[in-house]
């Protein structure tokens, strides 16, 4: 059994909700769909018990009816585990993973700015990457946001 298969088995045995949700796409690439209500528990387990000790990035996506947030973790730089959660578009909110990885700070700010997903537990600080005067309700990575139809406030923010 390969290391990837062991990881898949361990996750599926520990969490019933992950049965058939963990997919090994290729060598060193594992993807798992995680129910949002179980995310804290599963994330803590992968970091603390399974020793996924680094986070490469957090990707936020507009998937139509829902937002998708993907956490790209890796183990000693080798095996990449991508944990995906779906976030409701009404008052979208996720929990910060800064308690596990201090480096998640800037990735979470990026998701807040570009998609408008609130991050619970993200400390106050500079926004990233949009300019200071950028309206707080304009989120360019949402599929319905078009640069060509941007509002006057957006144009002013870029001056």
């Amino acid at each position: 059994m390969t290391e990837e298969e062991k990881i898949k088995q361990e996750l599926e045995e520990k969490f019933g909700c992950l049965k058939d949700k963990v997919v090994i796409k290729r060598e060193r690439r594992i993807f798992a769909d995680v129910p949002i209500e179980k995310f804290d528990e599963i994330f803590a387990f992968t970091v603390k018990q399974m020793h996924f000790d680094a986070i490469s990035a957090i990707t936020g996506m507009d998937s139509g009816d829902l937002f998708t947030v993907m956490y790209h973790l890796n183990k000693e730089g080798r095996i990449v585990l991508n944990l995906t959660i779906s976030v409701n578009k009404n008052n979208p909110s996720i929990k910060s993973v800064i308690p596990y990885f201090a480096s998640a700070d800037i990735y979470e700010r990026e998701i807040t700015d570009l998609l408008g997903i609130q991050v619970e537990g993200l400390p106050a600080g500079n926004r990233y990457p949009l300019p200071d005067g950028w309206p707080t309700n304009e989120h360019p990575l949402r599929k319905d946001w078009k640069a060509s139809q941007s509002k006057k406030e957006v144009r002013n923010a870029l001056l």
């Binding site: 990457p129 949009l130 640069a147 060509s148 139809q149 941007s150 144009r155």
Partner: peptide, 9 residues
């Protein structure tokens, strides 16, 4: 950084 180009339509 990678940003927004605004088209002054």
């Amino acid at each position: 950084d990678r940003t927004i180009a605004v088209n002054m339509s």
